[in-house]
């Protein structure tokens, strides 16, 4: 197990280096940073001084090393648009995204458990068909449009919830609901299929023969084993939630990291987008690492 964990951490580090190299290359391709900083009237000597000051006169490997050192110290540069230090900008926005996405993942887990288990228990009936249809539809409908429709039905016409922004708990309802739609279909399909597999197994039959109530058999004995495949989906769903956050936060004017990225894209604010993407990369890698280790712990066949 220790060997597996060490190997897996080394792999994650290599992946991180690959990603950082790609971002570094893009940073250099995004244009000469000197030209962005230098005032229009700067002389050639001034430009040389700025170049030296920024360390751009050094060789590329050296520049990459400096880039890594700054990143690891949390020094991510300054936003081009609002002249604020990127680290504090992200620190300001990040909690909003974390609270939004965690609620969305929790909600989609609860709903998909109910839907998936119901569909599996009523296999082949109209309920099963309905859940399958909803899952397929959920994967196909553009979520940004769903968010717009939700705003008009529940905020504009019915007036139950605010249209955008954040502050009160009521502000959470619509963004969390629409964001949970990103992982809901895949979770539901997974739970349904793994539940079907488990319900046909010997120990479920045994539990039934013992005379346990159907609810006990399904929700305790079967579900506990059916939920394991959901672990692997957690890594994938994380990426989907990040994608979703960019869209949902834009639609609901939610002051989170996703909207920051979308705004940085429109304003062509490279330092902000570079730092956000790097941050997401690190978190995605960490989540996948944790998922793999947990999985190896639960299922010893995975270790190598």
């Amino acid at each position: 197990m220790a060997r597996f964990i060490i190997l897996r951490i080394i792999q994650a580090l290599i992946t991180l280096i690959v990603i950082s190299m790609v971002i570094f290359a893009l940073a250099r391709a995004s244009g000469d940073p000197v030209m962005l900083i230098a005032p229009p009237m700067a002389t050639l000597e001034d430009i040389e001084v700025i170049r030296k000051h920024l360390g751009l006169d050094k060789s590329l490997p050296e520049q990459y090393w400096v880039f890594l050192k700054n990143m690891s110290r949390g020094d991510l540069g300054e936003s081009i648009r609002n002249r604020i230090d990127v680290t504090s900008l992200i620190a300001q926005r990040l909690p909003n995204t974390v609270s939004l996405s965690i609620s969305a993942i929790a909600l989609s887990l609860i709903i998909s458990l109910i839907l998936g288990v119901t569909a599996a228990c009523k296999f082949g009936t109209w309920m099963d068909g309905g859940v399958k249809f909803l899952a397929i539809l959920g994967q196909a409908l553009p979520s940004f449009w769903l968010a717009i429709v939700a705003i008009y039905i529940f905020a504009v016409w019915l007036g139950w919830f605010p249209t955008s922004g954040m502050g009160t708990p009521a502000h959470f309802v619509l963004p969390v609901l629409t964001l949970s739609f990103f992982s809901l279909p895949i979770f539901t399909r997974l739970i349904r299929s793994s539940m079907l597999e488990v319900l046909g197994s010997e120990y479920v039959k045994l539990a039934r023969i013992k005379g346990l109530s159907e609810g006990m058999v399904v929700w305790k004995h079967a579900l506990r084993n059916a939920i394991i495949p959901l672990l692997t989906a957690a890594g994938i769903s994380f990426g989907m939630i990040v994608t979703g956050a960019v869209i949902i936060e834009t639609v609901f004017a939610w002051p989170g990291l996703g909207r920051l990225m979308a705004e940085a894209m429109i304003g062509r604010d490279f330092p902000v987008i570079q730092a956000s993407v790097m941050l997401v990369a690190v978190v995605v890698l960490l989540v996948n690492l944790l998922v793999d280790i947990t999985y190896a712990y639960v299922d010893p066949r995975i270790r190598y």
């Binding site: 995004s30 990426g239 989907m240 990040v242 994608t243 894209m265 570079q274 997401v280």
Partner: peptide, 14 residues
């Protein structure tokens, strides 16, 4: 592991 939308945003800026 990487969300495609983010790379698109990154490239969009560059």
């Amino acid at each position: 592991a990487f969300p495609a939308l983010l790379i698109a945003l990154l490239l969009g800026v560059v």
